[in-house]
Write a protein that binds this DNA or RNA. Structure first.
Length: 218
DNA sequence: TGCCAGGCCGGGT
DNA sequence: ACCCGGCATGGC
């Protein structure tokens, strides 16, 4: 497929999904730090399980980097138990909290003033933050236009032959960054639309989706 | 009742 | 530079 065709297809997928799902207004949270916590907790985990964990943290008044960083690991892991992998995730929450305290004394508004590329590099050095979590933090917590590539994105793009089955994270992200747009709202919406489409029509065991709004492209 | 969910790390090749 | 096992709870 030529580059021009890929560009058209990327846009077409967006248009069809938006027509079907509408404006999703994704990832609402009460604070940037809550977004970061959610980004860690939702790693390979259904969002419903994450919400309970965040509710626990809020109820205990520990939804702040200073509190997370100083809490005993056993206590923290119990609070986030519902999100799965709670021991490793407790450690990851501690790591990212320490990073925030170190980098901006806990003031995320200050962190937002740094440039996107530099921030991404720093985030990737934090143990427990990989490319998807870093990009989720960049766009949803730190206001940086970034396309987040997740398992659904890869599956849907591969299914529509935009990329190969073995495409890397950076390859897929570069494709969207160069052929779609760098507008923050649109990138947010695209990610949300792909996840929604994946949940409804493109699960692992059901690659054939009769009612998928993207069916017309196949 | 297995299978899957908005990944990432560490050790091995 | 990849490949793989481990990490774990809750919903369908």
């Amino acid at each position: 497929m030529g580059m021009t065709d890929k560009k058209k297809k990327i846009k077409k997928i967006y248009v069809l999904l938006e027509k079907y799902f509408g404006d999703l207004k994704w990832w609402p949270a009460e604070s940037s730090f809550e977004v970061i916590v959610g980004a860690i907790l939702t790693q390979n985990t259904a969002w419903g399980n994450v919400e309970k964990a965040i509710a626990n943290l809020r109820q205990k008044k520990v939804l702040a980097p200073g509190r997370i960083a100083t809490m005993k690991p056993a206590k923290l892991s119990q609070l986030i138990r519902s999100s799965g992998y709670h021991r490793v995730k407790a450690q990851r929450l501690r790591e990212v909290s320490r990073f925030i305290l170190r980098e901006c004394k806990g003031k995320l508004s200050r962190l937002k003033k740094q440039d996107a590329a530099g921030l991404r590099g720093k985030l990737l050095q934090v143990k427990g933050i990989g490319p998807e979590t870093a990009d989720s933090i960049l766009i949803y917590a730190l206001d940086k236009p970034t396309f987040v590539v997740d398992a659904y994105t890869k599956r849907i793009f591969a299914r529509h032959t935009l990329v190969g089955e073995d495409a890397s994270y950076d390859e897929i992200q570069s494709l969207v960054h160069s052929f779609f747009t760098m507008d923050k709202k649109a990138l947010n919406q695209y990610h949300a639309l792909l996840v929604e489409a994946g949940k409804h029509f493109c699960k692992k065991r059901t690659p054939l989706c009769e009612d998928c709004p993207l069916k017309v492209l196949l």
